[in-house]
């Protein structure tokens, strides 16, 4: 199986490749990709250099251009696709219908993957993207069970890629309005779930208090495990009950499910975390490469101990091992 690994910086790209990534995904330092954080991402020159480094070691580079262009301002996104092609990228990861149409028309030889931001979670949607825009691979949303993924794969002709580690989005991806409610900005249009300029941490009464857009979203005792400052992982009080309304502060770890995902027809395993450091990338990629190598060799995959690296320091297999009520 192909291991698709995150890189927020050229150093992280090298760490991913050196640690055994089959493919690395990254994005430009602007609003065209869904990890648009300060200090992160690639210039055009850095991407070209990164592609050269990856190709020299037999790895591919996929460029995420997976936010939704603003009407009347498509030039930035069109330019990003052209520059990815020019840099020698092996594929672009797109979500927007218009951008997919543009890429199919103007860059027909550039392989197109459908971003998870498109939230294509059934055969009809996937087959539409494949037929209309020549999409070759679909990144599936993190809301499907392994059995549902197997059923989808039986009805489509394109490759599927699934997340196996990292941040766990349980929303209809690309449609989430939580950040917009609190900050007026959204991951779909601006590229970040919680824009850092709206995040505030304060030490209040022995507690680390996190606010997003002025709203308190959780309080943790100093020194205790803390989640990312996203509304979906917030801890709220309602009717005298306090808890995580949307999702617990946990990360996805589907390492134990990799053999079942392979049998379900999945082509590629994706690791989330372009906002993380090269230390994270190196450790996770090395661990998952041991899993895919074992699978390839017909051995039992090794058990991984990666919870420490996870948000909330705990992990879940998410929707893969359960069905929705």
């Amino acid at each position: 199986m192909e291991l698709v690994c995150p890189a927020g910086t050229p150093a992280a790209l090298r760490a991913a490749v050196d640690s055994g990534a089959h493919s690395v995904y990254c994005g430009f330092a602007d609003a065209t990709n869904a990890r648009n954080f300060p200090g992160l991402n690639f210039s055009r020159a850095e991407l070209a250099e990164g592609v050269g480094y990856a190709h020299a070691q037999g790895a591919k580079v996929l460029v995420a251009i997976n936010t939704f262009p603003t009407a009347g301002d498509e030039g930035l996104w069109h330019c990003a696709v052209a520059d990815a092609a020019c840099a020698g990228a092996d594929a672009v990861i797109l979500a927007d219908l218009g951008l997919l149409a543009h890429a199919a028309e103007h860059h027909p030889d550039l392989r197109r993957h459908l971003s998870v931001q498109a939230a294509a979670a059934n055969p009809d949607a996937i087959n539409f993207y494949a037929e209309a825009f020549g999409v070759r691979r679909v990144v599936l949303p993190r809301v499907l069970s392994v059995e549902e993924i197997a059923a989808i794969n039986r009805e489509i002709a394109v490759e599927t890629e699934v997340f196996v580690f990292g941040g766990l989005c349980v929303m209809a991806e690309g449609r989430c309005s939580l950040s917009s409610y609190a900050t007026g900005r959204s991951p779909n249009m601006n590229g970040v779930c919680s824009p850092p300029e709206f995040v505030d941490y304060a030490n209040e009464g022995g507690q680390n208090v996190a606010r997003l857009g002025g709203f308190v979203i959780h309080r943790t005792p100093n020194g205790a495990s803390a989640p990312y400052p996203t509304l979906c992982k917030g801890c709220f009080t309602s009717a005298d009950k306090t808890g995580h309304v949307f999702e617990d502060a946990v990360s996805l770890d589907a390492s134990t499910l990799v053999p079942r995902l392979a049998k379900a027809g999945v082509t590629a395993l994706k690791i989330e975390g372009r906002q993380r450091s090269r230390a994270y990338v190196g450790q996770i990629v090395r661990a998952f490469r041991a899993v895919t190598d074992a699978l390839e060799a017909g051995r039992e995959p090794p058990a991984l101990a990666l919870a420490r690296l996870s948000e909330g320091q705990s992990a879940t297999t998410g929707a893969y091992a359960k069905t929705w009520r």
Binding site: T220, A224, A226, S277, A279
Partner: peptide, 15 residues
């Protein structure tokens, strides 16, 4: 590059 900043933050070791 030995340790990840987010990991330290998650564990409460970094504020």
């Amino acid at each position: 590059g030995v340790e990840d900043g987010d990991t330290l933050f998650f564990s409460g070791a970094l504020q």
